[in-house]
């Protein structure tokens, strides 16, 4: 089917659409388009907006003052929601002092179909829609975000940015100008949902029914 590529490209060129802009320049130096006001603001405003928008999207949030509080916060949330104390954790969270919490069983790695609770870490929070930007990798397997019925997501409050574009800028800054994209970037805004049955909003179709954000301040 080597001819198909050439045929399609030739057909595009034959269409002779009037020239527009500088495509090579656009790719070499990606620029934001209009960024709405709700994606801009001072850090305190962005934090407040992130929380409000995430909650509006039916995520819940616990405020923690340090990573060492993650186990207790996770256990409290699971207890309050009658969920099992068995957690599949992203390997990147191995440095959390899990062992001090005797009630939790924590395994590290990718999620399996049998996992009920998963915990992973967000790369950034995006205030404009309360969205978590999560990167895949050996330390943060994407399956943890999607297979378990309950998803706990760790976010450092200092990583909350205003707009989607700020998330991309952060990624380019920290991961290099080329080849910066991990296999998956997941923007997650609230738990899994569907309105396919009579437009009734139901949570937890294939992904998690609960999304709980462990927001680490300071």
């Amino acid at each position: 089917m080597s001819g198909a590529r050439e045929d399609i490209l030739a057909a595009i060129r034959r269409a002779e659409v009037a020239p527009d802009g500088d495509p090579a320049g656009r790719l070499a130096n990606p620029q934001p388009n209009l960024v709405p006001a709700r994606g801009q603001g001072l850090p305190a405003e962005l934090l407040a907006r992130f929380i409000a928008e995430a909650e509006a999207a039916k995520a819940s949030i616990a405020r923690l003052s340090g990573r060492n509080e993650i186990p207790a916060a996770a256990e409290a949330y699971l207890a309050a929601n009658s969920q099992p104390f068995e957690i599949k954790a992203a390997p990147g969270l191995a440095n959390v002092p899990w062992t001090k919490q005797s009630l939790l069983t924590v395994n590290f790695g990718r999620a399996e179909g049998s996992d009920h609770v998963g915990i992973s870490e967000a790369f950034a929070g995006i205030a404009e829609t309360g969205t978590l930007m999560v990167l895949s990798g050996p330390d943060n397997p994407a399956s943890v975000n999607f297979l378990p019925d309950t998803h706990l997501l760790v976010l450092d409050a200092s990583r909350i940015v205003g707009a989607y574009e700020d998330g991309w800028a952060l990624l380019r800054r920290e991961h290099g100008k080329t080849g910066f994209m991990p296999r998956m970037v997941n923007w997650i805004t609230g738990p899994s949902r569907s309105a396919d049955i009579e437009l009734i909003l139901l949570l937890g179709v294939h992904g998690p029914r609960r999304l709980h954000i462990l927001l680490i301040d300071g």
């Binding site: 928008e53 999207a57 790695g109 990718r110 999620a111 404009e128 829609t129 969205t131 895949s136 990798g137 050996p138 397997p141 994407a142 399956s143 994209m181 991990p182 296999r183 998956m184 970037v185 997941n186 923007w187 997650i188 805004t189 609230g190 738990p191 899994s192 949902r193 309105a195 992904g207």
Partner: peptide
């Protein structure tokens, strides 16, 4: 589309599993 600010999941998938990845 649905009158949401954004859908619950927006995914940017780039190529096959990377070295060391356990899923994908």
């Amino acid at each position: 589309a649905t009158g949401q600010d954004i859908t619950a999941y927006t995914t940017f998938a780039t190529g096959p599993a990377r070295r060391g990845e356990t899923d994908g």
